[in-house]
Write a protein that binds this DNA or RNA. Structure first.
Lengths: 164, 164
DNA sequence: TATTGTTATACTCTATAACTATA
DNA sequence: TATAGTTATAGAGTATAACAATA
């Protein structure tokens, strides 16, 4: 593992970046038009919507979506101001804040989702067969797991995710 | 093609977003530390460095990297201020501007590249075998081509890339 | 002392519209 | 009239550091 990239790897890396940039750009436009949501805000809402309780602690909510604590506070503040989530002190740990999706938040999520799915479907999955997708999923899963468990390469203390 | 997503597709989409977000974040940090470059600036420099002449017209340089004309002007301005590129009027078309990478630009690219490759290699390719990478490349290529030829979904005039 | 979250602040980046100049 | 690029400006997002409160 000489930490170098052969031509196939290099091309794959470039294609990956290009594909996800275009996809993300398209999706961001759709979300903005359909619900005046940024992608990060959508991700946060989606996570809350997926949760059985509709809630998460701030810290847990941050994982993978936002890379600084203040960034999450900022986004949560916007969502709260828009009436899409509520923040309340956590019962068990007085330091924590529990974020909960509101009915309006769920409604907006539902409003935005079909168009979102349409963009992803039409842009990412159209050229891929069912088995292609399964293959892709099988390739991404180990990469995802590897990245999740990898400490930030540079010099950062490997404490947790959001803090430096 | 009912423009919906089955569970496998949904999971694949999420993994794709997560993987590239983490990768991009890691790479951005490396580029910033090693050469005080943003990812967009790095992409522009890399494109110029790849060109046989070391030059591109502004418009051609924009493709896929930046989504507005002014954004490119801004970034090119930063690169020029840093002495990494030069801008000069194009000989054949007086409206165009030719951007050329300088020796300092090439030097910075060379300085930054090993660390860049190391991050990509260690984060993205470590869990993938040689044949995995080939498979991934084969899956991404048609998606890339499809996205390149797809007009922006929403309502935008399908004119070109940068202009609205 | 470590952790959770907020605030203030500064900075980077992006996008829109108005503008100039050339084809 | 359409294209290439710049400028001004405004807004969104991010990160750092200092801070308060709880474990």
């Amino acid at each position: 593992m000489p930490a170098s990239l052969d031509p196939v790897q290099l091309g794959t890396y470039f294609d990956l970046i290009e594909v996800t940039s275009l996809l993300r750009h398209a999706v961001e436009q759709q979300l903005k038009e359909a619900g005046d949501l940024s992608y990060v805000q959508f991700q946060l809402l989606a996570r809350l919507g997926d949760s059985p309780t509709g809630s998460h602690r701030m810290t847990d909510l941050a994982d993978g979506v936002v890379y600084s604590r203040s960034g999450l506070t900022y986004q949560a503040g916007l969502l709260e101001k828009a009436g899409l989530v509520e923040r309340s002190p956590s019962p068990d740990d007085e330091r924590s804040v529990t974020v909960t999706i509101t009915d309006a938040g769920r409604a907006l999520l539902a409003k935005v989702l079909p168009g979102h799915v349409e963009v992803v479907s039409g842009l990412l999955f159209e050229p891929l067969s069912r088995s292609d997708v399964e293959t892709l999923a099988a390739l991404l899963a180990p990469v995802r797991d590897h990245m999740r468990s990898s400490p930030p390469r540079s010099a950062a203390p490997r404490r947790r995710k959001t803090g430096a």
